[in-house]
């Protein structure tokens, strides 16, 4: 088994190769604004570091979020296009699960990442491998009390959450993502593996749809929010506006995240 894993659901752009028992190479750069620029060279780098070619890769796994959407899509698009050219399956693993797995924790805790708009994406875990609730999106002060919180969302809102609850890791690592995926891929029957990789119709754009997602699934994004566009009313009256001296123009492109 040679797993190529990548994740762009947080400011970390991370890629790794894993042979089923250990991480062979990993590249992680934290830069919230350059996912599109950094990811493909990172994939090239980890392949070069192992003297491997994409032809050697047997499965590709991407972090499926939740995460800010523009960056998140880079990883999933890359995974799905690479898989198509190489002729292997692409899978998605919840990014919060990868952060949880990397922590190695054995007691209950939360993972929280930045969801922008003063909110966090979060999930509750019984231990490093067991998600009990989530992923969800909420304000930091609405997180369950007392449990330790790991992930960049914890550090970002340490004042609200309480500094003594903040733990590591801050960002997902593709190495941990690959290791977690490798555990779930081991011993998977070929038919089941193909079935799991198939992307179904419909989007995960609500918390309800995301609840109870298996660790290993198709390479598709977990959005948790619908696009926030407004359906317009009647056209603005230009004559009245002109009388009131208001600006008359409106943009053709509707704003939305």
């Amino acid at each position: 088994m040679l797993v190529l894993a990548l994740d762009t659901a947080t400011p970390a752009v991370t890629a790794a190769l894993h042979d089923g028992s250990r991480v062979l190479a990993e590249s992680t750069t934290v830069d919230a604004r350059r996912h599109g620029e950094l990811l493909a060279p990172a994939v090239e780098r980890v392949l070069r570091d192992c003297d491997a070619s994409l032809r050697d890769v047997t499965v590709i796994v991407a972090g499926s979020g939740p995460g800010p959407y523009t960056g998140l899509r880079v990883g999933l698009m890359t995974a799905s296009a690479l898989a198509a050219t190489v002729g292997v399956h692409a899978y998605g693993v919840c990014t919060l699960d990868a952060i949880a797995f990397a922590s190695g924790r054995t007691e209950p805790f939360l993972v929280a990442t930045d969801a922008r708009r003063k909110e966090v994406f979060w999930a509750r875990y019984g231990d490093a491998r067991t998600r009990l609730d989530g992923p969800r999106v909420d304000r930091p002060h609405d997180l369950p009390a007392e449990l330790p919180v790991i992930g960049a969302g914890a550090r970002m809102y340490a004042e609200t959450i309480g500094g003594d609850r903040v733990g590591d890791p801050e960002y997902p690592s593709a190495g941990a993502l690959a290791a977690l995926a490798a555990e779930h891929l081991a011993g998977l029957a070929p038919e089941r593996a193909a079935e799991l990789a198939r992307v179904p119709d419909g989007r995960i754009d609500s918390v309800e749809q995301a609840s109870g997602l298996a660790v290993l699934g198709p390479a598709r994004p977990i959005y948790l929010r619908r696009p926030d566009a407004q359906i317009p009313g009647a056209p603005k009256k230009v004559l009245e506006q002109a009388r009131r001296g208001e600006p008359r123009d409106e943009r053709g492109v509707v704003s939305g995240q």
């Binding site: 959407y69 698009m77 509707v254």
Partner: peptide, 24 residues
């Protein structure tokens, strides 16, 4: 169409879903 203009986030989501099938 119902928004009366192109909504960037709607377009981006649709591109991700449509890319692989359209290439095939």
């Amino acid at each position: 169409a119902r928004f009366g203009g192109v909504v960037p986030e709607v377009a981006s989501r649709a591109h991700l879903e449509a890319m692989a099938p359209t290439v095939e």
